[in-house]
């Protein structure tokens, strides 16, 4: 059985089962803010920073699709603390780094950009990339 979608909506519909399986498709997911034009310097990781303030899984009951990203944040808080978030939350009061998106009110619960950055950082870190390489990749992908 083949498919011949002619529109973006048609393609999504054609992949119905697949798209539904992905909880919150990229097209329908909440964006914190449109990307781009939010470039700025990446922060310097704070010595001794850790994941103690990162929201726990039991605090993410309303955002199950965000759980893998929060797991990534718990694995590499020292990396996330050296990354500027490109979704716009970097301009919020009290924000320091991408790690901030995973603490307190945790914008990353709803924001696919926050989630994507952490998951990409985690994947690249596990692949041996340095912080600078991860920053460059995140700038290219989300900046």
């Amino acid at each position: 059985m083949s498919f011949a979608p002619v529109t973006r909506r048609g393609f999504i519909a054609g992949c119905g089962a697949l798209m539904l399986a992905w909880s919150g498709t990229p097209l329908a997911a909440a964006h914190c803010e449109t990307r781009s034009s939010r470039r700025g310097p990446h922060p310097v990781p704070r010595p001794g920073v850790n994941a103690s303030k990162v929201l726990r899984d039991d605090q993410l009951a309303d955002s199950p699709e965000a759980v893998p990203a929060f797991e990534a944040a718990r694995r590499i808080p020292h990396i996330l603390d050296g990354i500027r978030c490109h979704c716009g939350c970097a301009d919020l009061k009290g924000f320091y780094s991408l790690l901030s998106c995973y603490e307190a009110d945790g914008m990353a619960r709803m924001c696919v950009i926050c989630q994507g950055q952490a998951r990409l950082a985690d994947r690249l870190f596990r692949g041996g990339s340095s912080l600078d390489e991860i920053r460059a990749a995140i700038d290219a992908r989300f900046g």
């Binding site: 083949s2 498919f3 054609g14 089962a17 697949l18 399986a21 992905w22 909880s23």
Partner: peptide, 15 residues
């Protein structure tokens, strides 16, 4: 090959 969230191939689209 398009994938399901568990990494298995999706039934469609395919080929």
């Amino acid at each position: 090959t398009w994938l399901n969230p568990d990494g298995t191939p999706a039934s469609e689209p395919h080929d």
